[in-house]
Write a protein that binds this DNA or RNA. Sequence first.
DNA 1: CAGTATCCATCGGGATACTG
DNA 2: CAGTATCCCGATGGATACTG
Lengths: 123, 123
Amino acid sequence: MATSARRGPYFCGIDAAMDVVAGKWKSLILWELHHHGTRRFAELRRGLPGVSEKMLIQHLREMKEDGLVHREVHREVPPKVEYSLTEHGVSLNTALTSLGKWGAERMRRIGAEKVVITDSGDK
Amino acid sequence: MATSARRGPYFCGIDAAMDVVAGKWKSLILWELHHHGTRRFAELRRGLPGVSEKMLIQHLREMKEDGLVHREVHREVPPKVEYSLTEHGVSLNTALTSLGKWGAERMRRIGAEKVVITDSGDK
DNA sequence: CAGTATCCATCGGGATACTG
DNA sequence: CAGTATCCCGATGGATACTG
C-alpha cells in the first residue's frame, strides 16, 4: 500500500537509510520530534507548514513501521495522540546532523531562502 | 524540466541536503565516484546495475548543476567523458558516512538483503 | 482532535530507438 | 562511446470532504 519502505535489498547503508528518510516531510518530522520530545498530531501539522493531513499521517505510519517513532494513544475526549522518537529515531537524527551541517553550508553558498512560517500556517 | 533540485526555500539544512541527494541513484553515484576517483559514463553504468542511461545522465547533469561532480570531455574518437567529484561532492560524501553507518546497522536489524551484482548487470 | 476516504495532478523513472 | 528523444506507467503527494 502506501507503505513505501522497500526494506531491501539495498546497495549499501546509505541506500538503506535513504529509503527510510525518503518522503517530503520525514526528515522534518524527525527534527520536530527530536526538538520537542513529544508532539501531538495537530502540533506537528502546525510545525510543518504546507503538509496535508494525509501526508502527515502516512509518513508517521511508515516511520512507525520502520521503528523510528512511537505512537501513544490517550483514550479520552477529545482524542489525544502523542508521537515521539524511539531510540532508533534518535540515532537516525544524530546520524543526520553532519548532513544537516553540509546542507546549511550549501544554503549559504547558493543563498537559498528559508521557508517563511506564517502564523496561520498557510503557504 | 527534469532539473528537480529546488534550490530553496528550505526548512533547514537537512532539507537542503536531501534535495541534492534525492533521486534513486545519486548517493550511489557519489559512492562510486568517491571510491574510484574518476569514472567514465559506461563504467558508472556497469557500477550501478539496473540504472538506465536516461536516469544516469539525468542525475549526473543535476549533480553537476549542483556543483557536486565535475565533467571532463576528452575530444577524441571514440568519445570519452570522465566524471569525478568536486570538493563539495567529496564533503557531501563525508557528511553521508554517519548516515551510511546507521543504514548498515538498520540492514542488520531487519535482515535486509544486499543487491546481488550479476556479471551481466541485470536484475 | 485525530484521523479516513476519494479523487486527481504531477513527476520520477523505465524501456526503447536513434544520433554525433 | 556517450549521449538524445519519446513514450509510458506507477508512485508520490495534494485537495477536499467525511467520521469516531
